[in-house]
Write a protein that binds this DNA or RNA. Sequence first.
DNA 1: CACTTGACCTGTCCGC
DNA 2: TGCGGACAGGTCAAGT
Length: 294
Amino acid sequence: MPELPEVEIIKLGLQKKIIGQRIKTIRILNPKTFQDSNGKPFKFAQGLRGQKVLNVWRRAKILGIDLSGDLILLFHLKMTGQLVWMKSENRFVGGHPTSDMLGNLPNSHTRVIFEFSDGSKLYFNDQRRFGWIKMSSKLEFRSEKFFEKLGPEPLEKGFSQKILKENLLKHLSMPIKVAIMDQTVVAGVGNIYASEALFLAQIHPGKKVGLLSDLEIKKLHKGIIKSLQDGIAYRGSTMTHFKDTEGKKGDFLSHAFVYRREGQKCKKCKLTIKKFKIAGRGTYFCPNCQDGVK
DNA sequence: CACTTGACCTGTCCGC
DNA sequence: TGCGGACAGGTCAAGT
């Protein structure tokens, strides 16, 4: 599920809910999900007990929680991960869950449960079990190369056209869609927002990086930023799994130009949206609006 | 070295 | 109704 906008929505939700709370208990229902910094299942999660949540942050598609006691938790939700927060007694904020929301938790996909000092709980659910939580000390974290290779944050000032071009030029023969999903080129773009950004930039997803003009890179830079901002504004993309911290779906896909719109009319030119595969991933585009591979 | 494919998992949907 | 295959937000390691 989650690309940059979805993780951002979760970050904003958690900041409001858990900063200042202390961890009371942690239940690990799937040992593989909870790992040390080397990816080995963690055996000493009880070290978390009593630690206070100091901050919640995001880098690329990774969510971080800074704790007292020199500890850091990192979360990667991969395809189907969810972080859903509830007040005590498994009740949603705002009352009974609507059809947009989850049923009661834990469910069969709940892998880890954190309980906080006020009785609220944070459920890490993950149908496919690709997602992980890593725990390390701040000291260990600082010396880690974990984030070193990541490209720039596209919604921060450091993401200039110039940087995008420099990073793209390392991958001249790659289809542009694959290149912008490469986390070392730009951080946080995944399969949905890659298709959307390329539509906004009017570039065919299969066009080789080396064939892009400066104007196209300029439009792509804008398109990446715009699609991600819209993703956040509509509170993320839900195909089936993405939920925010209150269990609500995101609405971005009903505003998408191309993603999952195969056979439907282009919102700009009214011709038909097409789908094909690039590097094994479903890719959507408008053959009329997006420049071909010449 | 640059790039592509398969593996990791579970669930759903579609065609036969 | 059942069964096999393709596919689904991501990222590695292994292979070409």
